[in-house]
Design a protein around this nucleic acid. Structure first.
Length: 755
DNA sequence: ATAGGGTTAG
């Protein structure tokens, strides 16, 4: 599947310089204007005179007077510098009074900068109390307009001293020309720190208007987006949709979120299943020509991969290439992982092998790392190629100098255990210890699962005890594995025992443990216990999921507790879950078993109406039921539907039901034609199939057909069982052809080869 | 928990 989609097209992406990204950051640059430097020695002399003499003596100090009041009058920048270099705000205030009193004709605007210096000094004095508010009042009384910086300092000061109301008043009083981007940034920050989201958004809104005269800058973006991500309580009223709108409004002014911010945002969207939103955000930013880097693309690729959307993965990779965004190690890691998950292990291997070839202009700069190898090794193990996985571990060590880590070993141990090669798993476990890598809880769980799956539950429990002895504790997964296993062999008491043990051990719980126990109890028909555990699950703050509800419904039906089954379905629907195909199949199977075939058929119709696609189990249950009720016509109709309408390939069991029924109806021709159909559709007949047809052939004494089928069995290495031998033995000896049976058992053809 | 890729359970 999907082989037509060239995911490995990514190989064509070539790493290049990414430095251009750094130069593409746009900024509207509203830096606060600083008065340029004046003559330093003049400034120093003035400061020296001011510091050396008590302020009462300043008016009579001639050198000072000529420095400050000579014609042409000194520039505001000079006065600013002098003020800033005074020892304290108190002294600076004296200085300003001195300036004001000794040159009453002076334009008040020229005192704006010295006043800003006064605010700067006062804001720096930690024990200043609230003099800044007083100084602000003074500036108003003196009629001295604020500079932009002075306004910003005042707003910041009021904010950090919990006088946010005052800062709001101040901002509103400001001359419109002072409410520039810088001042607004400070004001918005003050408002946000105080949790006044609405108010901040109002100020921001003006800035974000399309033809705004106070457009946002990088700092605005940092201030606002920082708060958006933290998930602070104060942002909870802002939905993700609005957050996205905000980001895009910033984008229209050329202000883009930092890569780390965008990556987090997309990651959060993807993790909560909102992949489309993540996709849209990234694409709108692309359209706005935002300077994007690789990580946000990696996050989205991961999200798309998890939802199996290979098509859009390919699109995104092509877009990366178009926009000159280079894939990095993570991109290749995601790609290898996705190819493995699609079982396209050889394609993944090809990607891995082409990395780090470094042959000139192409593909050289990214080398395979341990994570990629681990991904690949796991992929190989998951398709039963654990020997190759082991070989790859040796290869990465010897040829790339990469040391396997705990994940490498865990993947391989799981591979060998799942394949039933427990000894190999244990050998790897020992090897890993020799390598100085300590097993972790996943290693423990993997080995326990391996033993459980292969009928060694007691060994698993012993191993668990041994590991606890050396300080390796189990977790919810350990208990789930053991509980599932004990349930599967019907040892419910031991399963309960482990469940209680887990609760007393205080290991952190997970709903899966409850699901597992409930499922086991349902299969064992212990519905009272199952209902009990269900209550405990709810008490622990979990909710049953659809799989868990399905177990319960199936269990109730099996115990003929029909009303309980219906109650459970109702509860599940009230919890907002729609019945899935498993639930419909459970209902259909129950009605089939109890003989309500019409009802079962109705349920199937309802299933289709609800948009739930019938599965092989749906058709299998109904076809089998019709067959065993002698309604072969209806069964054949369903069989044809499943081929033409649902396009579900029938399996061996489906054919067996029909073939058995046809033979019983003495329609041997029909049965043989179904066998041809099986061959055409590559569905392998099994021993049951052959037995049913042999019975029918024997009834009709069709020896030649029987020989042909016997050859077929030999050819497919399908082993006869005692039933086969019974039918054929009786029949062939009755017609004096016992030697054919002999030859058949020895695995030889019974009829001569024909053209 | 807080920018991205790898391992275990019904």
């Amino acid at each position: 599947m999907n082989t037509a989609i060239p995911i490995s097209k990514l190989l064509l992406l070539k790493p290049q310089s990414t430095s251009y990204i750094l130069t593409r950051h746009l900024s509207t640059g509203a830096n606060p204007q600083q008065p340029p430097q004046e003559d330093d020695s003049k400034t120093n002399r003035a400061v020296q005179l001011l510091l050396e003499n008590p302020h009462q003596e300043w008016p009579s100090n001639q050198p000072l007077h000529s420095l400050l009041f000579s014609s042409p009058s000194p520039s505001p920048r000079f006065l600013y510098n002098v003020t800033r270099n005074l020892a304290s705000s108190a002294l600076a205030l004296h200085f300003l009074k001195h300036l004001q009193q000794n040159s009453p004709s002076q334009d008040t605007h020229s005192l704006s900068y010295p006043f800003q210096a006064l605010f700067e000094l006062a804001a720096r004095e930690l024990d200043a109390g609230s003099p800044l508010s007083e100084l602000y009042q003074a500036s108003k009384e003196w009629g001295i307009p604020l500079t932009v910086n002075a306004a910003a300092i005042l707003i910041r000061y009021l904010g950090t001293h919990k006088m946010v109301d005052e800062s709001v008043i101040l901002f509103n009083e400001l001359d419109p020309s002072l409410k520039n981007t810088h001042v607004r940034n400070v004001f918005i920050d003050v408002l946000l720190c105080d949790g006044r989201l609405e108010c901040a958004l109002d100020v921001l809104d003006e800035m974000l208007q399309p033809s705004s005269e106070v457009p946002p800058d990088k700092t605005t973006g940092d201030i606002v987006l920082r708060g958006l991500l933290k998930g602070d309580r104060k942002w909870k009223n802002l939905s993700e949709e609005n957050a996205i709108k905000l980001v895009l409004s910033f984008g229209k002014h050329g202000v883009f979120p930092k890569t780390s911010w965008l990556t987090q945002m997309l990651s959060r969207l993807c993790r909560s299943g909102k992949i489309n939103q993540a996709w849209n955000v990234l694409h709108e930013l692309l359209a706005l020509r935002a300077p994007l880097e690789t990580p946000p693309f990696n996050v989205l690729l991961t999200g798309l991969g998890r939802s199996g959307d290979i098509k859009r993965m390919n699109t995104l990779m092509a877009e990366m290439k178009e926009s000159d965004i280079q894939p990095d190690a993570v991109t290749f890691g995601v790609l290898i992982n996705q190819l493995c998950k699609l079982r396209r292990v050889d394609d993944a291997m090809e990607v891995l092998n082409k990395l780090g070839e470094g042959n000139g202009s192409r593909g050289g700069s990214i080398a395979a790392d341990v994570i990629m190898y681990n991904t690949m090794i796991d992929g190989l193990c998951k398709v039963g190629r654990q020997e190759e996985g082991l070989h790859l571990m040796e290869q990465m060590r010897s040829m790339k100098g990469l040391e396997p880590n705990i994940v490498t070993y865990n993947c391989l141990i799981d591979g060998f255990c799942k394949a039933g090669e427990l000894e190999r798993g244990k050998l790897l476990f020992e090897q890993m210890n020799e390598d100085g890598i300590s097993p972790n809880v996943i290693t423990l769980n993997t080995l326990i699962d391996g033993m459980c799956r292969h009928g060694m539950i007691n060994s698993a429990l012993e191993f668990f005890d041994d590991m606890r002895g050396i300080g390796l504790q189990g977790n919810a997964v350990t208990y789930t594995t053991l509980i599932t296993s004990y349930c599967s062999v019907g040892n419910i008491a031991k399963a309960f025992d482990l469940f209680d043990q887990m609760l007393t051990n205080g290991c952190s719980l997970h709903a899966t443990v409850y699901y597992s126990l409930i499922s086991g109890l349902c299969k064992a028909g212990r519905m009272d216990d199952a209902a009990n555990v269900l209550s405990k699950l709810k008490e622990a703050g979990f909710r049953p999921d659809i799989v868990c509800y399905n177990s319960l419904v199936s269990g109730f039906f099996k115990e003929n507790m029909v009303n309980k089954a219906y109650d459970t379905i109702k509860e599940m629907q009230e919890a907002g879950m729609k019945p899935d195909s498993v639930l419909y199949n459970t209902l259909i199977a129950y009605f089939c078993k109890t003989g309500y075939l019409e009802l079962a058929g109705e349920v199937m119709k309802q299933m289709i109406n609800q948009g739930v696609v019938p599965t092989i189990a749906t058709y299998g249950a109904l076809i089998h039921a019709y067959c065993s009720n002698g309604k072969i016509k209806e069964a054949m109709k369903l069989f044809n539907d499943m081929n033409s309408l649902s396009k579900i390939p029938p399996n061996t069991t489906t054919y067996n039901s029909l073939i058995e029924s046809l033979c019983k109806n003495n329609d041997i021709k029909g049965a043989l034609s179904l066998m041809d159909d099986m061959k055409a559709k590559s569905v392998k007949p099994n021993t049951t199939t052959y037995n049913e047809v042999f019975k029918g052939l024997k009834e009709n004494n069709l020896l030649e057909d029987a020989y042909r089928l016997m050859d077929g069995m030999v050819e497919h290495a399908c082993n006869p069982d005692s039933i086969t031998m019974g039918i054929l033995g009786e029949w062939l000896s009755a017609v004096g052809e016992s030697e054919k049976l002999q030859s058949f058992v020895q695995g030889n053809r019974v009829s001569p080869l024909s053209a």
